Amino acid sequence: MAKRKSERDPEELPDASDKGKQNNDDESGSDEDMDMVNVDFEWFDPQPAVDFHGLKTLLRQLLDVDNQLFNLSELADLILSQPLLGSTVKVDGNETDPYAFLTVLNLETHKEKKVIQDLTAYLSKKSTSLPALPSLLNASSQAQVGLILTERFINIPHEIVPPMYTMLLEEIQWALAEKEPYAFTHYLVLSKCYSEVQSSLPSNDAPPSKKKKNNSKEGEETFYFHPEDEMLHKHAVGYTSFEYDSPVDEGASDSKRAFQELGVKPKGHMVLIEAGKFEGAVEAVKTYLNGQ
């Protein structure tokens, strides 16, 4: 399959330098002013020669405390084995580590690989609130499920996401034209969410709380690390959040509190989308994240 991806974003991101100029004009000389950094993001195909360690870091972040349950080296190698499908986002050229990535893996095609077997079993176990999924992941199923893996560092602007999804759609079409195994019946997007929990710090160490949260599972409010997930929900067969298997130390949520009153408890998240509705989901994500 010939390389067709441009290394530059087809959709320009907001220019941070313009925002910085406006702030300086409005609040010149103020100690409150924030320095704005103008960064050029570039989109690349995954590079087997340079991206292995960067992808492992992002996969570790995506799978959170349960990352230890999987062979991340094998998973990174699998992603890099299809370098013309999916994207990485970098800021200092192609030879640097990625700040974000997005790819899709065919769970049926790679079902003999140990890491895919582990992931499939794990996701099936976590899909109790997504009843359509276990049968699709069953070994006897005829479904072709594309597992979408995507993650980015927390300070990366969400405007980088629409180009990655747009290019993925194009690359799948090119792959299908060349008879490659990407005729998916469903897409399963693996992501992360979180809930807020009361601080476990002693009252004299914790900041004063202005509101109380219901910490029961029935009353928990869910927040999303990836805002596009809420748009994907509207086009999905279903979606679910799930607890991680690996135990965490008491007070771990406080370590993620970072200048807010409540602790943060990360969870896994999955969105299942039929292939026929995936393009519409991508268009909705583009509209939402681009502020249209």
Results as ranks from 00 to 15, higher is better:
residue 114 K to T: 09
residue 232 L to T: 06
residue 245 D to R: 03
residue 160 I to K: 00
residue 210 K to T: 13
residue 283 E to Q: 14
residue 94 N to C: 05
residue 82 Q to I: 09
residue 249 D to A: 07
residue 255 S to Q: 07
residue 60 R to G: 12
residue 212 K to M: 10
residue 4 R to Q: 15
residue 70 F to E: 08
residue 39 V to P: 15
residue 274 E to T: 09
residue 127 S to C: 08
residue 138 N to P: 00
residue 226 H to A: 09
residue 89 V to Y: 02
residue 212 K to A: 14
residue 287 T to W: 02
residue 122 Y to R: 07
residue 8 R to A: 05
residue 89 V to D: 03
residue 219 G to P: 12
residue 28 S to V: 09
residue 214 N to R: 08
residue 134 P to L: 09
residue 275 A to S: 11
residue 252 A to L: 02
residue 123 L to F: 15
residue 265 K to V: 07
residue 42 E to L: 06
residue 59 L to M: 14
residue 27 E to K: 07
residue 284 A to D: 03
residue 286 K to D: 03
residue 272 L to W: 12
residue 73 S to I: 04
residue 178 E to F: 05
residue 284 A to V: 03
residue 226 H to F: 10
residue 222 T to I: 13
residue 76 A to N: 03
residue 110 H to N: 15
residue 45 D to H: 13
residue 259 F to R: 03
residue 134 P to W: 14
residue 20 G to I: 00
residue 257 R to S: 12
residue 82 Q to N: 10
residue 171 E to A: 09
residue 187 Y to T: 00
residue 126 K to S: 08
residue 92 D to S: 05
residue 65 V to W: 01
residue 38 N to S: 13
residue 109 T to A: 14
residue 175 A to R: 14
residue 59 L to G: 05
residue 135 S to R: 01
residue 125 K to L: 11
residue 136 L to M: 11
residue 183 A to I: 02
residue 46 P to F: 08
residue 183 A to M: 02
residue 113 K to E: 15
residue 277 K to H: 09
residue 208 P to D: 11
residue 218 E to A: 07
residue 248 V to S: 01
residue 160 I to N: 05
residue 169 L to H: 06
residue 125 K to A: 11
residue 211 K to C: 10
residue 168 L to A: 11
residue 258 A to I: 13
residue 249 D to E: 11
residue 280 G to Y: 02
residue 33 D to T: 04
residue 243 E to S: 09
residue 54 G to I: 01
residue 53 H to S: 11
residue 217 K to S: 12
residue 56 K to H: 08
residue 122 Y to E: 05
residue 59 L to V: 04
residue 90 K to E: 03
residue 96 T to V: 07
residue 179 K to N: 15
residue 52 F to T: 01
residue 123 L to A: 09
residue 225 F to T: 02
residue 109 T to D: 07
residue 102 L to N: 05
residue 218 E to H: 07
residue 161 V to I: 15
residue 273 I to M: 04
residue 245 D to V: 09
residue 147 L to D: 01
residue 11 E to I: 06
residue 9 D to V: 00
residue 103 T to N: 12
residue 271 V to M: 04
residue 214 N to Y: 02
residue 181 P to A: 12
residue 285 V to F: 01
residue 36 M to Y: 11
residue 106 N to S: 11
residue 187 Y to P: 03
residue 80 L to P: 08
residue 19 K to A: 07
residue 75 L to V: 13
residue 140 S to W: 03
residue 73 S to K: 13
residue 220 E to M: 10
residue 86 G to N: 08
residue 137 L to V: 08
residue 233 H to K: 14
residue 120 T to L: 11
residue 73 S to L: 02
residue 3 K to W: 11
residue 130 L to N: 08
residue 155 N to A: 01
residue 67 N to Y: 14
residue 20 G to Y: 01
residue 38 N to W: 02
residue 278 F to K: 02
residue 48 P to D: 06
residue 75 L to N: 13
residue 173 Q to L: 13
residue 287 T to S: 15
residue 131 P to V: 06
residue 216 S to N: 12
residue 79 I to T: 05
residue 158 H to T: 12
residue 63 L to R: 04
residue 63 L to M: 14
residue 188 L to A: 00
residue 165 Y to P: 03
residue 169 L to Q: 06
residue 16 A to M: 10
residue 132 A to K: 10
residue 114 K to M: 06
residue 31 D to R: 10
residue 142 Q to L: 03
residue 48 P to N: 06
residue 42 E to W: 05
residue 163 P to M: 04
residue 93 G to V: 00
residue 179 K to Q: 15
